[in-house]
Computed example of a mutant assay.
Amino acid sequence: MTTRWLLLLPVLALTACWPTDEEEMDCATVLCVPCAPALMVRLHGSGGQSPPEAVLEGAPGGCSVDGSTTVCTLSDSRSGHFEFDIQPTGYEKVHVSETVAEMETHGSCCSCGYMPRAVDVQLKPQ
């Protein structure tokens, strides 16, 4: 056997064991990574200033400082339309109205059912 065929053998072995469309995969035996938040809002303040503390209003979740950015994340992990406010300290209140698209889960054990979104918002001082 040539080196090329030896490199191809593991790939062929794995694909031979992968279930076809007719077979059902046993999802109970599949280890999945946690789903990303459905919606994440990154708040950017004025240049040179430290990132502000912020509070979510009208939606479950929270905000925290991540480096030079304040990040607000919803704890509601689903597709759909989200509408809420964020009040950053020293800045105008931000109204967020975003839709998280549904993702088809046909044949996938580890699908979360939605396409995670990240939105950037430039803050305006009060």
Results as ranks from 00 to 15, higher is better:
Gln87Phe: 06
Pro125Lys: 10
Thr15Arg: 11
Glu92Arg: 12
Cys112His: 01
Gly90Pro: 04
Thr29His: 05
Glu22Phe: 14
Gly67Trp: 05
Gln122Cys: 02
Val94Ser: 04
Ser46Ala: 15
Val100Ile: 01
Pro37Gln: 05
Cys112Met: 04
Gly45Ser: 09
Met25Glu: 15
Thr99Met: 02
Gly80His: 09
Val94Leu: 04
Pro51Trp: 05
Asp26Phe: 01
Val65Cys: 09
Thr3Ile: 12
Cys32Asn: 02
His81Leu: 12
Thr29Ile: 03
Leu43Arg: 00
Cys35Asn: 10
Glu98Phe: 01
Ala13Ile: 13
Ser68Gln: 10
Ser108Thr: 15
Ser68Phe: 11
Leu9Asp: 03
His95Ala: 11
Tyr91Trp: 06
Gly48Ala: 02
Arg42Lys: 15
Ser68His: 08
Ala59Glu: 11
Val65Gln: 07
Gly90Asp: 13
Gly45Leu: 05
Tyr91His: 03
Ser111Pro: 05
Cys32Leu: 05
Glu92Lys: 13
Lys124Tyr: 00
Leu14Gly: 00
Val55Tyr: 01
Ser79Arg: 11
Gly62Gln: 05
Ser108Arg: 14
Phe82Arg: 07
Leu12Gly: 13
Ser97Ala: 14
Cys63Ile: 06
Gln87Val: 14
Phe82Asp: 04
Asp66Val: 14
Lys93Asp: 00
Gly62Leu: 06
Trp5Ile: 13
Val65Gly: 02
Val100Glu: 10
Gln49Gly: 07
Gln87Gly: 03
Gly47Phe: 14
Phe84Asn: 00
Gly90Trp: 06
Leu6Glu: 13
Glu53Gly: 09
Val65Lys: 06
Met1Trp: 11
Val33His: 02
Glu22Cys: 12
Glu24Pro: 10
Thr105His: 07
Val121Ala: 01
Ser50Trp: 03
Glu53Thr: 11
Ser50Arg: 08
Leu39Ala: 06
Gly80Glu: 04
Asp120Pro: 01
Pro10Asp: 09
Leu7Cys: 13
Ser108Ile: 12
Val71Pro: 09
Glu104Asp: 12
Leu43Asn: 01
Leu39Met: 05
Ala28Val: 07
Ala59Asn: 09
Cys112Lys: 05
Val41Asp: 04
Cys63Thr: 05
Thr3Pro: 04
Thr29Val: 10
Pro34His: 04
Leu56Phe: 09
Val71Asn: 08
Glu104Pro: 04
Met1Val: 15
Arg42Ser: 12
Gln126Met: 14
Phe84Asp: 07
Gly48Ser: 02
Phe82Pro: 02
Pro88Arg: 04
Ala13Asp: 04
Pro34Met: 00
Leu12Asn: 07
Cys110Ser: 07
Pro52Asn: 07
Glu24Val: 13
Val11Asp: 10
Ala13Asn: 09
Trp5Lys: 15
Glu102Pro: 00
His44Phe: 08
Leu12Thr: 12
Leu39Pro: 06
Cys63Lys: 03
Ser75Thr: 09
Gln126Lys: 15
Gly90Tyr: 06
Gly107His: 11
Pro116Tyr: 00
Ala36Gln: 13
